[in-house]
């Protein structure tokens, strides 16, 4: 379960403070597929990063699986993130010098050895990338890159997947394919929180949250 209480995030800039999130209160149940909608600059990514234990809010608390993330040490937070949260980004963020299998196994941390590679290959097979395991990201199409990123997000069997505009750079077929994999994860009991300014993910959502200027407009 994800619980956000009174979340405020203000970026301090030379030309004045920018309020990215304003008094967000949100509860996401385990196994829920939540789509956060809103135009660019509405605070979607900031909200995801805050839930991901990567961006400390200016005020408020974030609890995931009954753990208050920002009272934990940096090391514990990183460990918690590695064990519980998977990420999918619009820009894929694959490591350019690692092949597809290595990129996926990277999520398991270093010194994973053969176990990592075998499990990564298995996962890639399920995502239709069996023929691409030894390819570098530069040799993949956008859809293949995003499927690799999905495989990486799934590698550690996380409880939650946070997806930031995962279909933003994909054509409709690949977008549907990626959303399908996220939906499968959701149906297997995982929680998905997906930020997008499009509407294609709405069909998979249990709940849609609209963000506007850092505040929730409507929920449920």
């Amino acid at each position: 379960m994800v619980v956000l209480e009174n979340i405020v995030k203000t970026y301090r800039r030379r030309r004045g403070d920018v309020k990215a999130l304003s008094d967000i209160n949100l509860q996401i149940e385990k196994g829920e597929f939540v789509v956060i909608c809103g135009p660019s600059g509405s605070g979607k990514t900031t909200l995801l990063m805050t839930i991901a234990a990567m961006l400390r809010p200016t005020n408020g608390s974030v609890c995931v699986e009954q753990k208050d993330l920002y009272t934990m040490s940096i090391r514990d937070r990183a460990k918690f993130r590695a064990e519980n949260i998977g990420f999918v980004f619009q820009m894929f963020h694959l490591v350019p010098y690692l092949n597809v299998a290595e990129n996926v196994a990277l999520a398991g941390g270093v010194a994973e050895g053969n176990r990592g590679t075998i499990e990564a290959n298995e996962l890639l097979k399920q995502l239709g990338l069996a023929q691409r395991v030894f390819h570098k990201p530069s040799e993949l199409s956008a859809g293949e890159k995003q499927r690799t990123a999905v495989a990486r997000a799934l590698f550690n069997r996380p409880k939650i997947i946070l997806a930031d505009e995962p279909t933003g750079n994909l054509d409709p077929d690949n977008a549907a394919s990626v959303l399908g994999y996220l939906s499968e994860f959701h149906h297997s009991g995982g929680t998905v929180i997906l930020a997008t300014h499009g509407t294609e993910a709405e069909q998979f959502a249990d709940r849609i949250i609209h963000l506007h200027n850092g505040s929730i407009d409507n929920s449920g």
């Binding site: 990567m54 590695a82 064990e83 963020h93």
Partner: peptide, 16 residues
């Protein structure tokens, strides 16, 4: 930068 970012997101600590 982005490679470091993703590694941090994946739980890689400062030491690594």
């Amino acid at each position: 930068q982005q490679e470091i970012g993703i590694m941090r997101a994946l739980g890689y600590g400062s030491g690594r």
